[in-house]
């Protein structure tokens, strides 16, 4: 295993985060704080508790998860797309490094960034609303698993994309709507029965539900199903990446 190469890619990508601190950390934190102000304070004060949890605290896991999903995808897709776009990918492809190691470097850095971001949002939220985390280990587990899974998805998108527009399409048109409709701001019980059933086809429901359970033991689906679905999605992403590297799809001619 070429540890030095993985570390070089990881450090290189993390350096980009610090250099672009504004986009990487500050803007997601700002937008999440705005959600808190609007949904938590302004609207939330008029909403009753959900299963014994104050509305402001109820939306924290959903908001964290929403940022985690979009940022993991954006970070990882940009991380691998940019060298493809500039042509510097030649150096990665000609280095004595396996595809698995390339993924570790890029996805590791993207996931680290989103995890940091999630924790910063958590810290910001805890200033605004009183929070309780009943299962901190599970909470971290879901955080890491989701960050890694969606960074893998982002890596796939970064390899597939042919232009910057395509990089934006998936987070904007797929991830954000799924997160909004996946119970970030409500419990599935609040929906009519038909929409409850439709929501179960949304994979993000399982992520948010499991994550929320780790905070308050309130969940839409059982935590076991949440873990299984997340692992299933992780497996799917790993399979696609294995295929990409086996065939050299969009990387090697």
């Amino acid at each position: 295993m070429n540890i030095r190469a993985i570390w070089a890619i990881y450090k290189f990508e993390m350096a980009r985060t610090w250099r672009t601190l504004m986009q990487s950390i500050i803007s997601p934190v700002l937008s999440t704080s705005l959600y808190f102000v609007v949904f938590g304070a302004a609207i939330g004060s008029r909403i009753a508790e959900i299963e014994g949890v104050a509305y402001g605290a109820f939306i924290v896991p959903g908001l964290m998860m929403m940022s985690l999903l979009t940022q993991s995808v954006s970070n990882a897709s940009f991380g691998i797309y940019f060298p493809r776009f500039t042509g510097t990918i030649y150096e990665i492809l000609s280095a004595p490094i396996s595809f698995f190691e390339i993924v570790l470097g890029y996805v590791g850095a993207a996931a680290t960034k989103s995890i940091l971001l999630g924790l910063i949002i958590l810290a910001t939220a805890s200033v605004i609303v009183p929070l309780e985390i009943r299962h901190p280990v599970w909470m971290m587990g879901f955080l890491v698993l989701t960050a890694v899974t969606f960074s893998l998805l982002g890596f796939i998108i970064g390899i597939w994309a042919d232009g910057f527009e395509q990089l934006q399409i998936v987070p904007l048109l797929v991830i954000t709507p799924l997160a909004f409709l996946g119970g970030s701001f409500y419990s599935l019980d609040m929906l009519p029965p038909l929409w409850q059933r439709i929501s179960l086809f949304n994979p993000v429901v399982y992520l948010i539900s499991g994550f929320r359970w780790s905070f308050s033991e309130v969940s839409d689906v059982s935590v076991g199903v949440s873990v299984a679905m997340t692992m299933g999605f992780l497996g799917l992403c790993l399979t696609v990446i294995w295929w990409i590297f086996r065939t050299g799809y969009r990387l090697k001619s």
Binding site: N2, A5, A8, K11, R19, T86, T88, E91, P96
Partner: peptide
């Protein structure tokens, strides 16, 4: 080249990338 990187940083990266 990576337009936004510094010279030293990018050359140091290359050495690490090659293990």
């Amino acid at each position: 080249t990576d337009a936004f990187e510094s010279v030293l940083h990018t050359v140091t990266f290359s050495r690490g990338l090659f293990g």
